[in-house]
Each structure stands twice: as C-alpha cells, then as structure tokens.
Design a protein around this nucleic acid. Structure first.
Lengths: 149, 149
DNA sequence: CAAATGTCTACTAAGTTGGTAGATTATATA
DNA sequence: TATATAATCTACCAACTTAGTAGACATTTG
C-alpha cells in the first residue's frame, strides 16, 4: 500500500499543478487547505525540491511552485521517490535491481515472470498518469457529476 | 514490496504443489531444502492450513500437503493472505474497502482512476498465476535453458 | 529592524517485520 | 504401552519503518 507520505505528495503536487505559473503557494496554506500536517508536508516539499520537481522562494510572499510542466510529471516518478520501487519483488525492479536471495537460479524462476508482467503493466499506467492528466480526469468527473442530476 | 513471509509462502506452496498427491512433507525437510528458517516456516504453514489451502498429519511420517488442486490456488489469494490487499490505495480494494481519508469526495478523485486500473491489471495477472501454471513456466524455462547450449 | 517564510537537525511513539524459544499435544509403530 | 516423531501454540524480542513533532536557524521583503 502507498505510504501516507506518498499520498500527501501526490495531493500537494496536483494542487501545485493547478497553480502552475501563478504565485508561489506557502506550506501553511497548502497544509491547511489540503489537510496535511504542516511539519510533515514541510519535509515532503523539501524532498520534491531536492528532486528538481518543485522550486521555492524564501521570505515574505515566498512559497513553493512547480518547476516542471504538469504534462511531464507522472505518478511513476513520485511513487518511486517516496514509496520505493513499483515492483513487488526486487529482481524485476528498475533502478533498484537485486537478485532474488531466495532463488539463485533466477532464469528458472517461474514466479518471477508473473511479477514482471504486473510491474510492467503498473509502470505503463503510472507513466501515463501525469499531473495534467489527473487534473483533466478530475475536471471531467466533476463535470459529469453536474450533468447527471 | 512483498514481505518475506509472502515469498516463503509462495516457495513452500510451489514445492508442495510439486508433491501433490504424494506423501506429506515435514516442516524440517521443507525448511532445509528451500532454505527457509524453520520456526518462521512453521507459522506460515499453520496460516495456510487455517486458510484451507494445506492439510497436515501429526506424528511420525506426518507433515503438510496441499489440500486443493494446484490449478485452483493462485498468487492473488496467497498475496492477500500474507501481504494484505493488492491495491495501492484502500478505496479501490476488494474486501478491505475504506474510503480515502484524504479526499471525502471520492467520485471526484482523478488519482483514484489510475490506481484502479493498476489494481485491476495486477489482480487479473495474479489470478492466472496458479501453482500449476507457475510449475509449467518453471519447467518450460528449465527445458529451454537445456536446448540453448 | 521586524515579520514572514523556507531549511535543517534531532527526537519520539506506535506499529510492522522477521525472527527465536520452549512447552504441549497427537500419532505411528515397535 | 512406551518412545520417537512431528505438528501446534504462546510468548517473546531486536531492528526497522512510519507518521509525526519540536525548535533553532537562514533568508527575503517592506
């Protein structure tokens, strides 16, 4: 399951994507409006800045803002950053590769093939899930809700 | 990532599936041959018995054996038993349903749709991954290795 | 200078993971 | 019936992770 940190990161980023190219947003405002513990959010935003996804301005009227186009930031990146690898087992992982400790003869591992299928499917879907696409889906859902009544 | 307990469970089950309809296998033998800590394996096998997947005989020449056809036991069941839900977020989970604490207006949640896609893809693949199918893939890999040389 | 705001280090309580120890119960068979 | 064999059960533990919190410090604007 996703760590809360990852969830908070996604929520904060979607919000910051909605403010793309506007004034920077302050930690305190973001924390209050998205109901995220302020000090916890602080650490999350710092990580996102260190990862090059956000930028910040200090001092009065400062805050955080998205430093990349919302079309290019996707869930695969965010999940890897806060939650670790997307795969269920290390021997099918991108960037975190380790051989299965349990099974030295990896090439014979019939279990592995299924986990690789799952990982590949998940990565493909998460890569399509850009901040821009998430916002489009949210807006579409909101609109269809209104037309229903 | 998969807990070690889940990995061990899968390995033990694949082995027991290979012995299907033969003599029961003892914890000690299974532990030694599959390199699983004996006392840890003990707890795993008990859980599998309580879940109705294994049966056991006590006393001399006793041990554990698969009580279901290897064609009907799949990774989705095993992962859920030891690792919890397959989904990344609770609001798209089968049997463990909870609403997103972070977002009361679930129907508006654009993030959710992606996680649901991933979960559905994963469940579909894991359901096809029966013990029998894992063994077939293992044997196929082994055979193709031998023909290559 | 003062207020607002991000940055950094350190701490902590609760829960999970990956085990281990040891006593008990059931059964086959000599 | 005794004995060895094996599963069963309860309890414990160390290390790690998660979800925060506290408080001092640095930087910028007005």
């Amino acid at each position: 399951m996703l760590a809360k940190k990852t969830k908070y990161a996604i929520i904060a980023l979607v919000r910051l994507a909605r403010e793309y190219r506007k004034e920077p947003l302050q930690i305190a405002t973001l924390a209050a409006e998205e109901k995220i513990p302020k000090k916890f959010l602080e650490a999350i935003l710092r990580d996102l800045k260190n990862a090059g996804i956000l930028n910040s301005v200090k001092g009065r009227y400062g805050g955080y803002y998205l430093s990349q186009d919302p079309e290019t930031v996707n869930l695969a990146t965010i999940i890897r950053l806060f939650n670790g690898p997307i795969a269920f087992i290390p021997c099918v992982t991108y960037l975190y590769y380790e051989s299965c400790d349990v099974d030295k003869e990896e090439e014979f591992c019939g279990i592995r093939t299924f986990f690789k299928e799952v990982r590949d499917a998940a990565v493909e879907i998460f890569k399509k899930a850009t901040l821009a696409e998430i916002i489009r889906r949210e807006d579409a859902l909101r609109a269809s809700e209104k037309t229903v009544d």
